[in-house]
């Protein structure tokens, strides 16, 4: 083996290591999603973490949902809807409007990458957990309402970009969203599936369903077994 070839191999190795280190630094310091989440942007974008928690775990008193571990496509779509006015929230509308499309994608991808926090289940307030569990597992077909789990998964952990996780979200957030679906203030999807469902249930039923899911631990969908 010639000295030149050995030296070339060594240089190549160094180059690889250097490139890797640079890439890692870029991801840490240069990822705009992470930067916006932690620091916000000048001109009307507060740090996401100031309401959603430093780890994206959510903050019930602000009705700010957990974002960590949610599907990136779902998160991006919600930001797009805030930006377009299709979903309304005083804070989030101005935040989403101040972000570019790329920034919205980056923030969504950042929170989707964060680990799902192991939350302490929220105790239920003034609600009928048994009724909530019945709605979650069986629905109420007398008013044409399927089981929540039939679309949100057997553990309420969501299905990809289609249905978000419910388990481990706060009762305050879930209640507020169900109320918004009921009045039409938030449109769930192109078919209005949740709008119809929420409109056919009583406010007490909506509270019960919210309380039930708030009492379940958050978690990524089970990778093994039937997810039950």
């Amino acid at each position: 083996m010639s000295g030149r070839r050995f030296a070339a191999a060594g240089l190549a190795l160094l180059a690889c290591l250097g490139a890797g280190a640079t890439a890692a630094r870029g991801a840490a310091a240069g990822d705009p999603g992470r930067r916006i989440a932690a620091q916000g942007l000048a001109g009307g974008v507060p740090a996401c973490g100031s309401c959603h928690g430093a780890s994206g775990e959510g903050l019930a008193v602000q009705q700010a949902p957990r974002l960590a571990g949610l599907d990136a496509r779902y998160l991006a779509e919600q930001l797009d809807r805030f930006a377009s006015g299709a979903r309304k929230n005083d804070v989030m509308t101005s935040v989403a409007k101040a972000l570019t499309l790329d920034e919205r994608r980056a923030v969504a991808a950042h929170f989707a990458r964060l680990p799902t926090p192991s939350t302490t289940p929220h105790p239920a307030a003034h609600s009928d957990l048994a009724r909530g569990q019945a709605l979650a597992g069986r629905g109420d077909w007398a008013v044409n309402v399927p089981a929540c789990g039939a679309c949100h998964g057997p553990d309420g952990r969501g299905v990809g970009a289609v249905t978000p996780p419910l388990s481990g979200q706060s009762q305050a957030y879930l209640s507020a969203q169900l109320a918004a679906f009921r009045t039409g203030a938030r449109r769930s999807d192109t078919l209005g599936l949740m709008n119809g469902i929420a409109a056919r249930l009583s406010p007490a039923d909506l509270q019960a369903a919210a309380a039930y899911y708030a009492s379940l631990p958050a978690g990524a969908p089970a990778r093994t077994g039937a997810g039950r």
Binding site: G153, D189, P221, A222
Partner: peptide, 19 residues
């Protein structure tokens, strides 16, 4: 397609087939 997928293959929550 939103639930059953554009390819008709359905969708899952983890290992549980939901749609």
């Amino acid at each position: 397609a939103m639930c059953h997928g554009p390819d008709g293959a359905g969708q899952s929550s983890g290992a549980a087939v939901v749609f």
